[in-house]
Design a protein around this nucleic acid. Structure first.
Length: 335
DNA sequence: CGCTTTTGACCCGCGC
DNA sequence: GCGCGGGTCAAAAGCG
């Protein structure tokens, strides 16, 4: 039963000066209509007020997000600087020890980073004396691999150390747990060549090669984090020996226009996980070509954070709970 | 038709 | 030497 029908004022009006039943019904409906209109007006006003309040809150949250973003960018820069300093220090120490670049990896050294696909089968069992990326300094871990670099310092001889030797960087990407594609958007074209379930993580690990240039030695491993399955951990090995592919291919091969998960990665405007030196070069190129890249980076980051938040069921639930609580508090009491 | 993805098999390093 | 586990290969299937 609607609340306005039970209001005492309505029952009073019904009994005054109404000679015929038809008129009684007419007046009753008119009064009902007026009561409904008044109630609706109050509801509309309340909703408008709530809308204004939410709008203000949205503005405030946007400002907080901007401030957070600025702090993040600043901290990211500091971390980059620290990693550069640490990498320089490690280069000095490693060269003073006789140069670790010539030490062979304990793991099987494959030469497919040098050779093109047709002969890698015959050459894979031979040790590769100096892959192209080995000519660079060995400790070229990116800022994203700060944790790997830290592990390297604590665990000499471990697998992490090997990875750092061959220019390993890591990138953590938030992803929908229901999305099983294991696609990490980084601006490059990747071809998946294997998938494996590892011992320490029930989620499968996917192996990718750079498919933009056949001789590109870069490999990528993508696996969901065992702790938080909404996070994809992308591990990059090696360094691209080519420029970043264009965002969209106009009249390229058919495969380039396909909408496969790996192909769609290349169409997204996300910054590539370049090592530090290349990141700086890339940034300078971008700045020269398109103006300051910090704006673009901030925009991308803001979009990413917004997407991440809106995809998070917990965030949605919290938002709904907060809004419903406010609405109930602000709603006019009905007797 | 050309490319990518899938997936079982295989290779190889490492620990015991 | 053997088994385990990570990484890779390559044939088949899928896709536009």
């Amino acid at each position: 039963m609607d609340p306005w029908i039970a209001q005492p004022s309505l029952s009073l009006d019904l009994k005054v000066g109404l000679p015929t039943p038809a008129k009684v019904v007419l007046v009753e409906e008119t009064n009902n209509f007026l009561a409904v209109s008044r109630t609706k007006d109050r509801e509309v006003e309340a909703l408008e007020a709530e809308l204004r309040r939410v709008g203000d809150e949205n503005k405030r949250l946007s400002e907080m997000l901007r401030a957070l973003l600025a702090n993040y960018t600043e901290l990211q820069g500091q971390v980059n600087d620290m990693v550069v300093v640490a990498a320089a220090a490690n280069r000095q120490s490693s060269t003073s020890e006789g140069g670790s670049a010539a030490s062979p990896s304990r793991k099987r050294i494959r030469s497919d980073s040098l050779d093109t696909a047709p002969h890698h089968q015959q050459n894979t069992r031979k040790p590769s004396p100096s892959p192209p990326f080995a000519a660079h300094d060995q400790m070229e871990c990116t800022s994203a691999a700060a944790t790997a670099a830290a592990a390297f310092h604590h665990e000499p001889g471990s697998r992490v150390r090997e990875e750092c030797k061959s220019k390993v960087s890591r990138r953590y990407v938030h992803a929908d747990p229901s999305d099983l594609s294991l696609a990490v958007k980084d601006g490059y074209q990747w071809r998946k060549y294997g998938q494996k379930v590892t011992k320490d993580n029930p989620c499968p690990r996917a192996y990718f090669r750079c498919s933009f240039a056949p001789s590109c030695p870069v490999k990528k491993k993508v696996q969901r984090s065992a702790d938080d399955r909404t996070i994809l951990v992308a591990t990059y090995e090696g360094d691209h020996n080519h420029a970043q592919p264009p965002r969209h291919n106009g009249g390229g091969s058919k495969a380039a226009t396909r909408s496969t998960p790996a192909a769609t990665e290349a169409a997204r405007p996300a910054p590539p996980p370049l090592p530090l030196q290349h990141q700086h070069q890339h940034q300078q190129k971008q700045e020269a070509a398109t103006g300051p890249s910090s704006e673009v980076a901030r925009k991308n980051l803001a979009e990413h954070m917004a997407v991440t938040l809106t995809r998070d069921p917990g965030f949605k639930a919290a938002l709904v709970s907060a809004l419903s609580g406010r609405i109930l508090d602000l709603s006019p009491p009905r007797d």
